[in-house]
Simulated assay, not measured.
Amino acid sequence: MEQKNLKEDLNNIAQKVELRETQLLDFLAVIDRKEIKDKNKLIRAAGIPKATINKILEELKEYLEPLGQSAQFRPEWQQEIHKLLAKSSKENSQYLEEKICALFASLRNKKPLPKRQYDQFYATDQTTAKRALTISRNGDLDGRKIALLGDDDLTSVACALTGTAEKITVLEVDGDIIELIEETSQNLNLGIETIKLDLRDKLPPELARQYDTVFTDPPYTPAGISLFLNSALFLLKKSPLSRIYFCCGGSNRAREKELIIQKIVNEKGLLIKEKFSDFNHYHGAQSIGSTSSLYVCDWTTAARGTPPPNLPIYTFQQQKEMNRKRKKPF
């Protein structure tokens, strides 16, 4: 078997045992670097429940020696597995980050001016690269279908440059951003699909339950976050491996806003797996300290869309409405 087929087989095994491929590779890395002499030590070292370990060992029996003196790869597979693990290493991530940032530097002058009516504030190149690498390291990009709801930061391009996603689709309201993504995708043969769409309109029914991962940096209003999460849930497959990444910013002096975000997420039946504070950095957006957090949410069987508040979704619209009310005579 060639490495490509080994990788495909491991991806299939990961799905069978309901793990992300990166988790299975981490398991193989534990075997590679540790002398594991019994199953209990293997469970502790890998941090995976016993029932799942039993399933993994059964599925990997073609690649592993029987668990006796120590867990180890069969000699005929050692070289191929080592190559695969090396390809997933930190050094490879650093190379990809440099590659992404170099391309984005060349695209800087091609980006249209941010449109305030869409709450556009561009993220730094390093932030966009970090998003793609984080999604990839979490096992939510390799061999998976990812949708991006809004993409003025070109996160889709950064994801495509990893060369690992099965499909990348961008749903974007701004025609100028779509034009730039399409031009870049065509020039680099990235295969990114684009759909011009306002999420306040009905989503195409053929997109329902088609994606493993959804990424979005929505408008930072309760109505905006709710609407974009509803759209993400519409696109997401009903699977324990499905995941939503979304960004949201707020001042440290107004922490109650985070409670509103948590409430919206809870109402949608999503589980906040991780939150990375100050993950995203922007040019502008001083009202939120030019930073925002990245939320990683897992799909659950309770996941469902809920009606968003009947309010403007963009902060720009909200500010205009507030100014109008201030000017209204008593």
Rank of each mutant, 00 (worst) to 15 (best):
I313A: 02
E21L: 09
R304I: 08
Q117D: 10
Q78R: 13
L241P: 02
K41S: 08
L67Q: 01
Q79P: 05
T216A: 05
I56G: 06
F246G: 12
A51C: 06
L64C: 10
N109K: 05
T315Y: 12
N230W: 14
F121I: 01
K61S: 15
Y63S: 03
I261L: 05
P112W: 01
E183P: 09
L103T: 00
W77Y: 15
I244Y: 09
K320W: 14
S226T: 15
D153M: 01
L96W: 12
S136D: 14
K41C: 07
T184K: 00
R304H: 11
S106P: 00
E2Q: 05
L25R: 13
E35P: 13
S239A: 05
K115V: 08
A14D: 14
I146F: 08
V17P: 00
E21M: 04
A147M: 12
G47A: 06
F121C: 04
R253E: 12
L235T: 10
K328R: 13
A303P: 05
E179V: 03
L6H: 02
P218R: 09
E193R: 03
N5G: 04
L149S: 11
Y63P: 09
E182T: 11
F104Y: 09
S185N: 08
T22D: 14
G143S: 02
L107E: 06
L235G: 15
A46T: 01
Q126L: 06
D125T: 01
R200C: 15
V157Y: 14
I177C: 03
L270P: 00
T315E: 07
I135L: 11
G175R: 15
S242L: 07
F228N: 08
I225W: 07
I13Q: 06
L207W: 09
K90A: 01
I264K: 02
K328Y: 04
Y282M: 03
G249K: 03
A29S: 12
S293A: 15
